[in-house]
């Protein structure tokens, strides 16, 4: 945008200078024509016969304004097109970043869920904790809820893993149903005891 602003400033200055130079030339031309009747026989690079006659006509400000309008329109179109392309590129970059973050978040969430299923982590609620490096920009927390059907505890727990990218505010959630191992072990022991056998 600095380039566009610079171009815009340069064009404005050029148009202003051109207008000033033209006005100055017309003023000089008018003055000489009115004050020096022999001027027609002594043309200078600045004035000519046609110029002198033209000097008697109304100044063609409309034509200069049209040229300036064209420049302004062209620049506006250029800036507008550049803005659209920039917005599109920005959206593409943002989408690509979200795809990458989502893939990374899915890996981290599945990994944490697997560690819970492996028994390395308990099935319980936890507060936000950071991952180990190099994923220390991410945090995770777990929320659990027992599954109850018709007032009966099904021995299952719904666990939701929430993975958050703290720097960019990206959040990913992964839910799963896990067997409540404590309750499952108790049920199995009760069944074994009822059958008369040991564990």
């Amino acid at each position: 945008m600095n380039l566009v602003s610079g171009i815009w400033y340069l064009v404005s200055e050029i148009c202003y200078l051109k207008s000033e130079i033209s006005d100055l030339r017309y003023q000089i031309s008018d003055t000489r024509y009115q004050t020096n009747g022999h001027y027609r026989d002594m043309p200078t690079p600045w004035t000519s016969r046609s110029r002198c006659r033209a000097a008697q006509r109304p100044r063609r400000k409309g034509r200069r304004a049209a040229v300036l309008l064209e420049v302004i329109l062209a620049l506006a179109l250029f800036v507008g097109t550049s803005g659209i392309v920039l917005a599109s590129l920005s959206a593409c970059v943002r989408s690509a970043r979200e795809i990458r973050l989502e893939a990374q978040a899915a890996d981290l969430a599945v990994t944490r869920l697997s560690e819970i299923q492996m028994g390395l982590l308990p099935i319980q609620d936890s507060s936000a904790e950071p991952f180990d490096p190099p994923f220390d920009a991410w945090t995770w927390q777990a929320a659990t809820m027992p599954v109850i059907d018709n007032g009966e505890d099904m021995g299952l727990k719904k666990i939701e893993i929430v993975v958050t990218q703290t720097e960019q505010g990206f959040v990913y959630r992964l839910s799963a149903l896990l067997v409540d191992q404590v309750q499952a072990a108790g049920t199995a022991d009760q069944a074994s005891a009822a059958a008369g056998g040991g564990p």
Partner: peptide
């Protein structure tokens, strides 16, 4: 890390 249900040891019981 992918957990394998078919490879997990059953819970105590």
């Amino acid at each position: 890390v992918v957990f394998l249900p078919g490879g997990a040891k059953p819970p105590s019981g």
